[in-house]
Amino acid sequence: MIEHIENPAAVATVTWLPAEKGGRRSGPPTGPVYAATTAFTTGDPIESEPGWPATDPRTMSILLERTGSAPQITESMRVGFIAPELATSFLRHGAEFVVLEGPKPVAHGVVTEVLEIG
């Protein structure tokens, strides 16, 4: 289990979908760092295709680390990526992304701060 993101790329506000809207039945993750897949929304025509975002070839691995002490439906989180070079062209203040568990969206996020990746 990952305990901490060493070089976060950004900070984002993440809102977890309720179970009745397809979100996690157990609610927001409780571990220190949550790993999943993500796709950034860019207005690309692929986003209107059936199965998006799970079918987006730009989907990448994301790491989310809570900045507060307890899980919340909407929370500020540090954001990292397994392969940060895949995310750099999408990272900007206000960029939106969808968090996936398999093909299922479980949260959405908005980048509030881009950090220096070092």
Rank of each mutant, 00 (worst) to 15 (best):
P29V: 12
D44K: 15
M77E: 03
E101L: 10
W16M: 00
A83S: 08
G22C: 03
T42S: 14
P45E: 11
G51H: 08
L63S: 07
T59Q: 14
A19Y: 05
T15R: 12
E20M: 02
G27Y: 04
T112A: 04
A107C: 13
A54C: 06
G23T: 02
M1L: 09
L100I: 07
K21D: 08
S76M: 06
P8N: 05
F97E: 09
L100Y: 11
V106N: 02
T13A: 11
L63R: 05
E47P: 10
R58Q: 15
M77I: 00
V98S: 09
T30K: 15
A54L: 03
P45K: 09
V98P: 07
A95Q: 09
T42E: 07
V14M: 02
G109S: 13
V14T: 01
I117G: 00
A10L: 08
A36V: 02
V33C: 05
A35S: 12
T42L: 06
T59M: 09
V33Q: 03
V114F: 04
I5A: 10
A54I: 01
Q72E: 15
T13E: 14
A70I: 11
G94H: 05
G22A: 05
V14Q: 01
E75F: 05
E47G: 13
A83H: 13
S76Q: 14
V79I: 15
E20A: 05
P32I: 01
T30G: 11
R24G: 01
L91R: 05
S89G: 07
P8C: 03
E75D: 06
H4Y: 08
G68P: 00
R92D: 02
F40M: 05
E101Q: 15
W16C: 00
V79C: 03
R24N: 07
V111P: 02
P105H: 09
T41D: 10
P57M: 10
P71A: 10
P28V: 11
V11E: 14
I5Y: 08
S26C: 03
A39G: 03
I2L: 12
G94L: 00
P32H: 14
F40H: 07
L63K: 03
I73S: 09
A39R: 14
S48A: 14
A39S: 15
A70T: 15
L115I: 05
V99E: 04
T67Q: 15
E85S: 07
M77L: 08
G43P: 07
L100N: 13
G27N: 09
G31F: 10
V111N: 07
T13D: 11
S76L: 10
V33T: 07
F81K: 00
L64P: 02
P28G: 11
P105M: 05
V79P: 00
V98I: 15
A12E: 06
